[in-house]
């Protein structure tokens, strides 16, 4: 379908406005992070006297680096664990029929529909009972099961050509070997897409870390940068520098894996 000229103009205008709505806050954050304190509340978008002072201040703060480490460590372990368990669960759902197959899968789908906030209190109590409060375990373990990832991966496994499973089996590959050496290498786009979503979701999470962390031992960067926003004094320059730095890993993962998704989609065809 080819849109008329006027509809094309309308469409592009809407897209442009949406882009501005998304990019403007980010631009303000980045610009403010380079402003000296006397310019922070000025409306001019570009700093008149740009400075790296805010970044120096943030990097000089040992706690900020600890928050960064906590975020990076818990995110990598959590996303890795989520992908690992989701792959195994989805593979089982896609390849074998076993007693209770449909019931268990319905339970997985049901778990997707329960709001996270509803399960937070029982999980919080469980975490407290296990003495995991203010530890990395509290941030990682309760979030390892990811029904959404299971559902998406199961769909990908189901659409995987049956002949490749058969060929692997005839070549002497058991279910494990077939999964690691044949199936997963061909599902890199799906894994990359799911990793992007899970990584950003985990990296940006605020509410759960706020509940279960208390000290530098486990506080993540999203919680930690609040220290620049005290009741009696707010260092907006440092805060914006912290926010900018906190955004970089998520952006890096997104761009790195997005390219991988595109490369694999363009470069491969599953049919041999």
């Amino acid at each position: 379908m080819v849109l008329s000229r006027s509809w094309q103009v309308v469409g592009h205008t809407v897209i442009l406005l949406l882009c501005l709505a998304v990019l403007m806050p980010m631009a303000i954050v980045v610009a403010t992070s380079f402003k000296p304190p006397n310019e922070v509340f000025r409306l001019q978008p570009i700093p008149a006297d740009p400075t790296l002072r805010n970044y120096q201040e943030v990097f000089a703060d040992r706690a900020f680096l600890i928050f960064l480490w906590n975020s990076a460590g818990t995110t990598v372990l959590r996303v890795g664990g989520q992908i690992f368990f989701a792959v195994l669960t989805a593979y089982a759902f896609a390849r074998w029929r076993f007693p209770g197959h449909n019931l268990i899968f319905a339970a997985v789908l049901g778990a997707m529909m329960i709001p996270h906030q509803l399960t937070m209190i029982p999980i919080y109590i469980l975490v407290a009972e296990l003495n995991w409060f203010d530890t990395w375990q509290a941030l990682i373990v309760p979030n390892l099961a990811m029904p959404f990832a299971v559902f998406l991966l199961r769909q990908h496994f189901l659409s995987f050509p049956r002949e490749l499973f058969d060929a692997a089996e005839m070549d002497g590959a058991g279910p494990w070997t077939a999964l690691w050496r044949v199936v997963l290498p061909n599902l890199k786009p799906a894994l990359a897409a799911i990793t992007i979503v899970l990584f950003i979701d985990c990296w940006n999470e605020y509410f759960w870390p706020l509940l279960v962390t208390e000290t530098e031992a486990s506080q993540t960067i999203q919680i930690g940068i609040r220290r620049y926003l005290e009741e009696d004094f707010a260092d907006f320059g440092a805060l914006m520098a912290g926010v900018t730095l906190a955004s970089l890993p998520a952006l890096a993962v997104f761009f790195m894996l997005q390219r991988r998704v595109m490369e694999t989609f363009v470069g491969s065809g599953i049919k041999g």
């Binding site: 050509p161 002949e163 058969d166 005839m170 491969s268």
Partner: peptide, 27 residues
Amino acid sequence: SMDRNIAMVFQNYALYPHMTVRENVSF
């Protein structure tokens, strides 16, 4: 199947897309 020592050529060939010809043959 994996223990039968029977080889099969499939309708769509079922070559592993991520492997080279050498890797496919030697898998």
